[in-house]
Computed example of a mutant assay.
Amino acid sequence: MAKVLYSVTMSVDGFITGPGGDMQWMRPYLGPNAEVAELIPQIGSLLIGRRSHDGDDPHKGDEGEGKAFGGGWNGPMFVVTHHPPSNPEPGVTYVDQFAQALDLAKEAAGDKYVNVIGANIAKQCIEAGELDEVLLLYAPVMLGDGTRLFAHPGGHPVPLTRRSVTNNPTATNLWFTVDKT
Results as ranks from 00 to 15, higher is better:
150 F>I: 08
13 D>H: 05
135 L>H: 15
91 G>Y: 05
151 A>S: 06
99 A>T: 11
11 S>A: 11
138 Y>C: 02
118 G>R: 03
13 D>Q: 03
132 D>L: 09
62 D>N: 13
148 R>Q: 00
162 R>N: 02
141 V>T: 07
160 L>M: 04
56 D>Y: 04
161 T>E: 13
164 S>H: 09
60 K>A: 15
2 A>T: 15
129 G>Y: 04
148 R>Y: 02
98 F>P: 01
126 I>A: 02
176 F>G: 04
10 M>L: 13
159 P>Y: 01
58 P>D: 08
8 V>H: 08
142 M>P: 02
53 H>V: 10
145 D>I: 01
124 Q>Y: 03
34 A>S: 13
87 N>R: 06
81 T>Q: 07
141 V>Y: 02
41 P>W: 11
161 T>M: 12
106 K>E: 12
90 P>L: 08
165 V>E: 02
32 P>Y: 13
111 D>G: 14
58 P>Y: 09
34 A>Y: 12
1 M>I: 12
87 N>D: 13
181 T>M: 12
120 N>H: 14
175 W>H: 15
151 A>T: 09
89 E>V: 11
180 K>P: 01
161 T>H: 09
125 C>P: 08
163 R>E: 12
72 G>W: 05
113 Y>M: 04
171 A>G: 05
36 V>E: 12
51 R>L: 14
71 G>I: 03
54 D>S: 11
108 A>W: 06
139 A>C: 14
180 K>T: 10
16 I>A: 00
2 A>P: 14
3 K>I: 10
73 W>M: 13
178 V>G: 05
152 H>M: 07
167 N>E: 14
78 F>T: 00
107 E>P: 07
59 H>W: 15
148 R>P: 08
130 E>W: 06
24 Q>C: 01
158 V>I: 01
48 I>M: 11
84 P>L: 00
174 L>R: 07
29 Y>F: 15
78 F>W: 00
162 R>H: 10
170 T>I: 08
64 G>M: 12
169 P>Y: 03
49 G>I: 07
154 G>C: 08
51 R>E: 12
64 G>W: 01
181 T>R: 14
